[in-house]
Amino acid sequence: MKETVVIIGGGIAAIEAARQLLSLGYSPLIVERSNSLGGHVAQWHRLFPDMTPAQDLVRQMISSISQAEICLGTEVASLNRLKDGYSVVLSNGRNVVCRAVLIATGFDLFDARKKEEYGYGIYNQVMTNRDLEQWFNTGNDPRVRNPKSIGFVHCVGSRDLKAGNSQCSKVCCVTAIKQAIEMKERFPAAQIYCFYMDLRLFGKKYEDFYINAQKDFDIHFIRGRVSQVDETIDGGVVVKAEDTLSGKPLKVSLDLLVLMSGMVCNAGSASIAGMIRADVDTDGFLRSKDNVYNIVESNRPGIFFAGACTGTKTVPETISEARSAALSIHNYLKG
């Protein structure tokens, strides 16, 4: 009989960890709150830097775990420490006893309504990065109506102590550039502006993306954080920022404003951490045993982490971490 490992969460971290655990000879059990696998990535359209279709990736990943047991629409009702392992009670009434639990609860997209000055949910022509990805997928959003001018606001809810988040969400800079290019391809006549504080393009080929956006797609980068958005009489918006490179205030009217909502720790992660008294780090994400050497282990025996529950992560980072977590679980279980 194969040993069961409970994986809490059903995003790409959970799927990849399950795949690795299967190949290592375990029986992973995925407990996912929603009714589908793939998490945030499944809602995205294309992934930088090679414009990989997100749904192809998720589909391919899911097909690799057909042997795993998956409980969708299920939450963890309680998680209790036993002498040698954990008792996991699921919301469907099932009780699973296992020696190792992987927490892969991921992140929540920052609720852009909290930045009241940007008017998300109030002004008609303001949307988030996720809304735009969904429009790429479905082509269905009344806000996108042949825009002549589009703005992207970086760092919405990220690097924002007032919003309670000091962290950089890592992926928004390159996502904004990716989305700006995708919009320019669809609306070649549109003027597109990115409002940034710094451009944090650390990953493979990210900087190339930036140069392409400037040179081939004529995207304008304005160094200054948007401070205020208002609706204009024609139903568009007017945004204000400082053009910090000239030291002057700047305003521009836009037909569409896209807010790059950042990552915050999933609200469910803290409650699960609370059940086993795992720590929350000073940034609000779950605390790893060590932030340099041992990100996937917690300070509780048998509890492991993978993905954005411990901090903001890119897709490749999350996948690597999931593999690392599977290996750490294997090493832990074989003693």
Binding site: R113, G119, G121, I122, Y123, N124
Partner: peptide, 9 residues
Amino acid sequence: MIYQGKQKI
């Protein structure tokens, strides 16, 4: 303008 959004605030 989405009036319900303002009402929430």
